[in-house]
Design a protein around this nucleic acid. Sequence first.
DNA 1: CATTAATCCTATCGATTTAATAGGGATTAC
DNA 2: GTAATCCCTATTAAATCGATAGGATTAATG
Lengths: 137, 137
Amino acid sequence: MLSKKTKYGLKALTYIAKSEGDNPVQISEISKSENIPQKFLESIMLTLRKSGFLGSKKGKHGGYYLIKEPAQIKMADVMRVLEGPIAMVPCVSLNFYEKCDDCPDEHECSVHKLMIQVRDNTLKVLRNNTLEDLSGS
Amino acid sequence: MLSKKTKYGLKALTYIAKSEGDNPVQISEISKSENIPQKFLESIMLTLRKSGFLGSKKGKHGGYYLIKEPAQIKMADVMRVLEGPIAMVPCVSLNFYEKCDDCPDEHECSVHKLMIQVRDNTLKVLRNNTLEDLSGS
DNA sequence: CATTAATCCTATCGATTTAATAGGGATTAC
DNA sequence: GTAATCCCTATTAAATCGATAGGATTAATG
């Protein structure tokens, strides 16, 4: 299941990418337009800023803006920050690898084999899609 | 994240598929061999039986056996029973569709578009792989 | 028929995670 | 100096997950 956090984060990024002009976009505006609880969205935006996807401007008329071009923002990277590992089991994760407690040898593990395939195909999609793809028409 | 329930369930099915002969396989044996808590495995086997993947024999020398050929058991079907929907959001689920609370129009939703692609690719993998593929060498 | 070994079934528990809220601090435009 | 806005930490309520408990039922076997 995709968490609400990730879902809201992706929607917010898309909203900012779509909003033309150089003015920063306010949380309150995104919150109203996308039906996202404002306080919850606040913490998500903070995460996205701290991980280098967004810049912010404080005070009146402040808000958030993209730091990179939408075409440079890969969904795989956003997902890793908001949702965590893309792999369904830690033992097939590229960025968050962990050995399983059970499983003496993961190369013999049937689940391992299957989940590598799932990971590879999911990654393919998430690497091919950028924020530009999400916000385009 | 794949739940332990699903992971254990897949391992147990693989174990039974690999164990040749017509004798039913006991929970205690699978539990020891695959490092799965026995009581937990019990409830998983029950689920798999009730959903038509396994048959059982009660009493002494009882146990579980496959009802269908391994090649006929698609991972997509097993996953749906143990893990629930394959889609990451209910609004792109084929078997468990639900409208989102937010989202006035899901055809306009950027997350929706992305998650359909993820679902399609995951499904492709899970439909192509059968229990025979998992248990083969 | 008694014993043993197995599945069957329901309930419960503790830990973790999730989604959301609360409450204020810091900064900037005007 | 006031209002608007981001910044930050803490807390909470509910749900889920992994596991355990405790027995009821069934069947093989001597």
